[in-house]
Design a protein around this nucleic acid. Structure first.
Lengths: 342, 342
DNA sequence: CACGGCCGTGAGAGCGTTCTCACGCCCCCG
DNA sequence: CGGGGGCGTGAGAACGCTCTCACGGCCGTG
């Protein structure tokens, strides 16, 4: 009977109601699992739903509930190279897995430049999402302000630059970096260099600060020609390493603020004929999968991603539920993973 | 006057209309850039919009227009490792850039398993998106069927397994692989192996077929112990290379179906003490950024990504506009990039 | 000077939901 | 046997927008 060839408009609640011989309200109740429906009515509705292949129209529903059951994970990163950083993949995977058990949808939004950030801001303000997890925040990003002002639930992955009252989840970047520096110093290294992350990102700043604190605690001088800024990419790491070797040929160790950069540094060291760890000890940061496989395997600071991603979503959900209270935040401990490079 | 502390509900068209002293319809016209508005009215509305910081509610709009101005790019990939494949990053970046000039929003959706695929299918059927670009299609993926049946505009990145009438954009994987094999044969290699992609993906199948065709055209025997299946990851490539060296120690060349796998293969060859290209010539596929940097720099088959991503979006938009006609598809030519590895 | 046409405008219906009521029904208790 | 109290149900009003249609004012033309 049904015309299977024509592209039928999706059925509405009304049509289901008519077919099931009940009212729209009852269908709505069944669809939303309300308990106040008789078994017979429920059954009639369910078969009507199945027969018509009814799917609720979310726009209509959202219009009245003011909920979209969708949260966004924003990858706020102009550097495409970084987009393929395993760190992102891990976070995405973790958040996605946490949300899989709920009936919330996850969408990923990427912004390469300020124009796209504005677009994302608009997207959020238009009511497409219930909340936002924001990754890779740079010092001049407008997005946190836009979202905060619009009153959209927000959790940052990484603490904000200022002391604003916004929820965030972060690794103890400072502590981790300090431990890395301490480890190198304890091994007898005296000319310990560092390749930092981008210094417009808090992770870059904090890991640099931790490195400096570690040197000072070990009684070593903090010396600016032992510091080179990287960009969290492998290419950037190699470039920075070459620069350091040029500026400070006598360096005997380097703390690299991310594993992809450390891989690049390893390559640059090999090309310069330095042995790792004999001539130069290397410690990375992240404990990415590649740290285990590179040559030599990389000693690194592990971030507790398995703790961080559930926290990220939990904090966001709590804000969405609107249990009020101040924005909660969490800092997760890191730990040193010893391999061959240091 | 305005209470800045309370979380004011976002203003509606009505409130703007009242403030501007016009009707709701006129405000709507201004917001939607209709020409039939007098300059005075337009000005009044614009200042009211600015004053109230009015942002249209997309749910309400979509409810009547049946358009969301959002398209989804689905990364349909269970293997997290692959998610950080630069190929994905390039496609995402390209599509995103193409869409940046339009007023369409792009959301990324990822599916690790069938459950998440179903969730994405539901998401799309509920009317969240106007169309879908589907990447990384495996042979048993339910998503193409779900979306097609729901009548949602769809473009595949990579041709489908069967000859279904669905739009797609693909590289000439077969032709590219054949050229790679021909190149190796022309260089006098006689025992040419291959590391394939996953054979439940069409790119894996087609590149294998091209390799076989290339060998046959060169009068070489196609031999099953020269074929190992990889998974498009670096680790998988290394494993497959080790397997090949074990099975066929006399191989003198290998065509690797993706650059990340080729990097792994290079590593495995080095560990086995084989020189590249002297002992074993290597050709990759993709021309990813890493191909230039690895040791030795990788000869590879370049995919015309700069052509493919605009096509992908163009084909989708055409479907969304509904100009009817049969689903159009395109296959883009590849070309060999010669570097040191072969 | 009358009349048709165009242009800017507003009233109002509708998009597909949810949700608040109010209304019967049946059961239980007094 | 009568009255209260669930409990399942349905009618109808929102939600914030778009869009059709009709209307008044102005012009140009006959």
């Amino acid at each position: 009977m049904t015309d299977l060839t024509s592209r039928a408009a999706s059925p509405t609640l009304d049509e289901v109601a008519v077919l099931a011989g009940v009212s729209r309200a009852t269908v709505s109740r069944v669809v939303n699992d309300s308990p106040k429906v008789s078994p017979e009515a429920r059954q009639a509705v369910l078969s009507a739903v199945a027969e018509l292949r009814y799917v609720p129209n979310r726009m209509a529903r959202s219009l009245v509930t003011r909920r979209t059951d969708t949260v966004a994970l924003v990858l706020n990163e102009p550097n495409t190279q970084v987009f393929s950083d395993p760190f992102f993949a891990s976070i995405v995977r973790g958040v996605s897995a946490t949300l899989a058990d709920t009936d919330l949808n996850l969408v990923l939004l990427t912004a390469q430049d300020e124009r796209e950030q504005q677009k994302i801001g608009r997207y959020a303000r238009q009511g497409h999402v219930d909340g936002v997890i924001l990754m890779s925040v740079h010092s001049d990003d407008p997005l946190p302000d836009i979202l905060e002002e619009a009153g959209i639930p927000l959790v940052l992955c990484g603490r904000p630059f200022d002391d604003r009252a916004v929820a965030f989840v972060d690794a103890d970047n400072r502590g981790g970096a300090q431990e890395a520096a301490a480890h190198l110093a304890a091994a007898g290294r005296r000319r310990i260099a560092t390749i930092t992350g981008p210094l417009d990102m808090i992770a870059g700043v904090d890991r640099l600060a931790g490195y400096q604190a570690g040197l000072q605690a070990a009684g070593l001088e903090v010396c600016s020609d032992l510091v080179a800024e990287g960009d969290f990419t492998e290419v950037g790491g190699a470039r920075a390493m070459a620069e350091l070797l040029d500026r400070a040929p006598d360096l005997d160790a380097v703390f690299v603020a991310s594993d992809p950069m450390a891989v690049g540094a390893l390559r640059a060291l090999r090309e310069a004929g330095r042995r790792v760890p004999e001539d130069v000890a290397v410690v990375g940061f992240d404990d990415a999968a590649i740290a285990e496989r590179c040559d030599p395997p990389l000693t690194t600071i592990a971030q507790p991603l398995t703790d961080m991603t559930p926290l990220l979503t939990e904090l966001l959900l709590r804000q969405i539920e609107g249990v009020g209270g101040p924005a909660e935040s969490r800092v997760c401990r890191t730990h040193l993973v010893r391999r061959a490079s240091a």
